[in-house]
Simulated assay, not measured.
Amino acid sequence: MSRLPPLNAVKAFEVAARVGGFAQAAAELGVSAAAVSQQVRNLEEFLGKQLFVRTGNRIALTDAGLAIYPQTARALNDIAAMTVRIVEGALRMRLVVSVPASLAETWLAPKLAELIEIFPQMAIDIRVEDDPVDLARQDIDLRISYGDYHYPGLRAVPLVHDEVLPVCAPEFWYKHGNHEFDLASIHESLFIHTNWGPNYASHPTWRDWFARSSSGVTGGTGPDPSRGRRVALSSLAVASARLGLGVALGQRVMARADLEAGRLIALSPTSLKLGHPYCAFVPDAKADRADIRRLLAILGNNAQND
């Protein structure tokens, strides 16, 4: 067998490279920053290469570090996956998918139903959580995320670049609307606003939509969010509109079934793209699994139809 580097040193290097610092790596590993630094030095001595450039408390990967990091992460992920299989005694295929809350029920669940038809005996674990998540540590097979920037060390598969458009329940429009579908005449208290939270600034707003559409409002500023209905999930905005609570800028992939069934109506052909696409992230070591490849195909094909 070829000579192998010390596993503790490899692990310390992988964590430090992933989190971007020895102190952060020490917190994850439960050791001191000095211990992480020493383990990295041990690996550098073993390989005869400098893996990090150290500037004060900051570190950056060297060319050698960049060259070995993907294989290091993949190897450790393989070991972790093997350990889970042995410890759990897994006899059946098990798929672990991590997804944001807004996509779980309205978009992902129907796709998983298609996958189960192909793999009826497969166990599926759906985890609803915010970015970022540690796929290797939590043994996650596939993460769906808004944007392509959270997981630079993983394989990224673009799924859909969604858009928003004004939607509401038919009954709501019969009561509050007009034959011209003129949103400028709707009182601003009847608009539903999606608050994505402090981590996001690229999602389109009602102000953006009115600026794009031909039906401007007074001053061209759009309805005041403080006077309307506000929700914290884009899926909840669609649900609120379906229940007749107002007019929402609904994401098309989440509103599609309701639009086709007539539970929602689109009030304008004017739509706005989200700032980033939704992407799937998969560890390289798992990318060739049959269930993952099939799920990616289902997500990609359905995304093209949305």
Rank of each mutant, 00 (worst) to 15 (best):
N77M: 06
V40K: 01
Q38R: 12
M82T: 13
L61P: 04
R74G: 04
F119T: 04
S37P: 02
F46M: 02
T62E: 01
V40C: 06
L108F: 10
L66W: 03
P70A: 10
G65T: 03
N57W: 06
D63I: 10
F46S: 02
L115I: 08
A104V: 07
T72E: 10
A60T: 08
V53Y: 06
N42A: 07
P70D: 09
D78F: 10
N77F: 05
S98H: 07
A64W: 00
Q39P: 00
A101N: 13
Y69C: 06
L76K: 09
R94C: 07
L47W: 00
T55P: 00
K111N: 13
G48I: 02
L91F: 12
I118S: 05
N77K: 02
A109T: 14
R41V: 00
K111P: 00
V36F: 03
R58L: 04
E114V: 14
V87M: 15
T55M: 09
A81V: 09
V97F: 13
L115V: 09
D131V: 09
M93K: 14
D131Q: 07
I59F: 01
E44W: 04
T62N: 01
R74Q: 14
S32P: 06
A67T: 07
A80N: 11
A67D: 06
M122R: 07
T83F: 04
R85Y: 13
A80L: 09
L76W: 11
E129M: 04
A101P: 10
K49M: 06
T72D: 10
Q71W: 09
L112G: 05
V87L: 15
L95Q: 11
A80W: 01
Q71P: 00
Q121S: 11
K111C: 14
L51M: 03
I79V: 15
A81C: 09
E88R: 13
T72V: 15
G65R: 03
A109E: 14
Q38E: 04
V36S: 01
L115N: 05
A67M: 09
